[in-house]
């Protein structure tokens, strides 16, 4: 699971959960791999992300890459910055671990890079 995916996931579908965001990450295994850098795509995706959640998620697994607390102005012109965001979003994989609902504490396992968000019948 990439941090881009984490930035979008919630546990809001659960009964009794209001926001379910952001999910905490417990990373057991991480993997880093190289993915083609596409600056246009990264510039386009940044406005759709919750920036603060990205920064704290990256920090929580030790892969912050010196991302600033606040998004840089005119980031789309800053290739060096976009490369760092690219790395954090797409090149860091949580292979094994857990996502944890901030409200209920429900744990969603991550195995082989796949987060399992399936709920039991009594949880929806």
């Amino acid at each position: 699971m990439k941090l881009l995916t984490h930035n979008m996931l919630t546990s809001k579908c659960m009964k009794g959960v209001n926001i379910g965001y952001p999910l905490k990450i417990k990373a057991v295994d991480l993997k880093e791999s190289e993915v083609d850098f596409n600056p246009d795509f990264i510039s386009r995706i940044i406005p759709k992300l919750d920036w603060n959640v990205l920064v704290s998620a990256a920090s929580s697994i030790g892969k912050n890459e010196n991302l600033p607390e606040d998004l840089l102005p005119e980031y789309e012109k800053n290739t060096e910055f976009l490369k760092r965001v690219h790395h954090v979003l797409l090149e860091v994989d949580v292979v094994n671990g857990e996502l944890i609902c901030p409200e209920s504490g429900r744990k969603f396992p991550i195995n082989n890079g796949i987060p399992n968000m399936i709920l039991n019948e009594d949880e929806v």
Binding site: S33, D36, N112, M117, L119
Partner: peptide, 25 residues
Amino acid sequence: LDNIGDEDMLNADVICCDVRSIPSR
């Protein structure tokens, strides 16, 4: 997962969930 094997380059994630409960984000 068997199909992708050790293909690290694959720029994709799969989420195990019901399509009807994909978060509105």
